[in-house]
Design a protein around this nucleic acid. Structure first.
Lengths: 120, 120
DNA sequence: ATCTTATATGAACAAGTGTTCATATGTTCA
DNA sequence: TGAACATATGAACACTTGTTCATATAAGAT
């Protein structure tokens, strides 16, 4: 009944044991959640969306979103750290683009999910 | 140069105007980011993963994760609100399962992304 | 009815987040 | 070299988030 730290009642012991064994590692869950978290902000969603249309420099992203260069730059760092966007320098400017095709796939799946007819 | 609230320099005016017009609505960005945010926590990732294996009641989720029933219940509410999980009552228990196939697609795309060989 | 079990929820608090402001870094051009 | 420009970053602050604890709700069992 209490073969772990937690003293919760277990109803389907067999399933619990099986799933516990197959469970995703804490470290992996952390890594995945960080990536989702990076997409979990409206400003960053709008940046991702803009970059899905075209590679853009920081000041043009700012102009597109109508936000300060500083705010955008801070957000770009987060996206950069999670490898959601990549960048290359060209003169004084830094051009950002989406890192790989998984990002847009996730984005599209999410759009499909929130567009489900039975969702309010 | 300043045809909006923001006084940022614009380098590629044509692209900025075009993308601004095509830009995702604030409301939509908010909705999408909320869904991603719901997946942006290791505990909720582990709940989603467990439920991808099998429909489970709350106490079995608690036991599987080794977390308190209260903590799990609070997290389930968030997943419920975003329609990421659905539930049905059976006796005293409430059984949770994934709401639709988009969730696992997003999950899998995310796994692919973080597993890219060029990511550290 | 009363007791136990399963789940949900409100309050509280530490920890984390996103923006602004000021400033630093780095590049181009005169 | 120095001025102007494009971007990055540190500090600060209001706001949000995830857990714990205590308790409420609700269903089955005695």
């Amino acid at each position: 009944m209490k073969d772990d730290i937690c003293d919760t009642t277990i109803i389907d012991k067999k399933s619990v044991e099986a799933i516990k064994k197959a469970m995703v590692r804490h470290e992996t869950a952390e890594r995945l959640s960080e990536t989702f978290k990076a997409l979990g902000d409206p400003t960053r969603i709008r940046i991702i969306y803009a970059l899905s249309k075209k590679e853009l420099c920081v000041c043009d992203i700012s102009a597109t979103l109508g936000m300060s260069q500083s705010a955008v730059s801070h957000q770009l760092r987060i996206l950069r750290n999670l490898k959601l966007v990549k960048f290359k320098k060209r003169g004084k400017s830094v051009y950002y683009s989406l890192d790989d095709e998984h990002i847009m796939s996730m984005f599209e799946k999410c759009v499909e999910h929130v567009s489900e007819p039975n969702k309010e």
